[in-house]
Amino acid sequence: MVVQSNATLAARRDAGADMLLVGIEVAGELADGYVAPGQYVEVDTGRGKGYFVLAGGVGESRWELLVRNAGDAADALHLLPLGSALRVSMPLGHGFPLSNARGRPLVVAVVGSALAVARPVMRFRIESGDARTTHLFMGVRAARDVPLSDEVSAWREAGVNEVLCLSRTELDHDRAVLPGAIRAEGYVQQELERAIDTLRVPAGALVVAAGPEAMLAELRSFGAARHREIEVITNV
């Protein structure tokens, strides 16, 4: 099937954890529509359609997507020749209003491939000089399942506080991966609540989250109950 093109498959590289980082060239109004981390797009490859979070810098003309090989559109992005025509939507959703986080601690809570959301946020916070008041909680089964681990390590070196939330049997595995991150047993939302209770994450923090709906629902409920301590936004 031929799609009416407004974008081009421009690049892809191994991101680790059985994922690829895919680059798509766009221009004009499309590029201008990417205004906040957490926005996402629909991609029509001609072999299927799928929704993907924008993982590159806000406003850039090369969109980046973190893609797991699952589903028609994702499979096509893995296999189509570079230079292939694509049809993409305008960026969707409001994303995360990072201006609300100026001068206050920020928590980014993500699971698996939703790390794509964290990528532009971390760039923004590091460039703004706010790395040391930024906390990243990542939920994966094992440390080797963290995509873009070299970039995640660089965020920590820049000052970001990182917590790997892992299953019990994987806590001591793959110690060479993200050796500077705190390792914790259990789900992201559970560890984040413990961190707030013990003041590892200070009161007044803004929490932005992306991942499974069950996790997001728990965080919204927790945020509503503790609204004087934290603010939770999950509107990706």
Rank of each mutant, 00 (worst) to 15 (best):
Val107Met: 05
Arg183Cys: 12
Trp155Ala: 09
Ala116Met: 00
Glu42Ala: 11
Val35Tyr: 08
Leu77Thr: 02
Arg183Asn: 08
Ala143Trp: 04
Glu64Trp: 05
Leu98Tyr: 05
Ala70Trp: 08
Ser99Trp: 11
Arg62Thr: 03
Gly180Cys: 04
Ala70Gly: 09
Pro120Gln: 06
Pro179Ala: 10
Arg220Phe: 13
Ala184Gly: 04
Ala70Phe: 12
Leu20Asn: 07
Leu164Gln: 00
Ser113Met: 07
Gly50Ala: 13
Tyr51Arg: 14
Tyr40Thr: 02
Asp145His: 07
Ile230Arg: 08
Asp32Ala: 15
Arg175Cys: 12
Met215Val: 02
Ala131Gln: 10
Gly28Phe: 05
Ala101Trp: 00
Gly38Asp: 06
Arg168Val: 07
Arg119Ala: 15
Leu219His: 02
Gly16Asp: 08
Ala217Met: 12
Glu60Thr: 10
Arg62Leu: 02
Gly23Met: 05
Gln189Ala: 13
Tyr187Glu: 13
Ile126Tyr: 09
Leu206Ser: 03
His173Gln: 15
Leu86Tyr: 01
Ala158Arg: 00
Val3Ile: 05
Ala109Lys: 02
Val53Cys: 11
Leu77Gly: 06
Leu98Gln: 02
Ala73Gly: 03
Ser89Phe: 02
Val111Ala: 15
Phe222Gly: 06
Val108Ser: 08
Ala225Ser: 14
Val110Ala: 13
Arg87Asn: 12
Gly204Phe: 10
Val67Leu: 06
Asn161Asp: 14
Tyr51Asp: 12
Ile182Asp: 14
Gly180Asp: 14
Gly129Cys: 04
Val160Lys: 00
Val58Thr: 00
Ala36Val: 02
Pro212Phe: 05
Arg119Gln: 15
Val146Asp: 12
Ser153Gly: 12
His173Val: 12
Glu162Phe: 07
His173Asn: 15
Leu54Gln: 00
Asn161Phe: 10
Val121Ala: 12
Arg87Thr: 06
Leu30Gly: 04
Met90Asn: 11
His78Asn: 07
Leu219Glu: 03
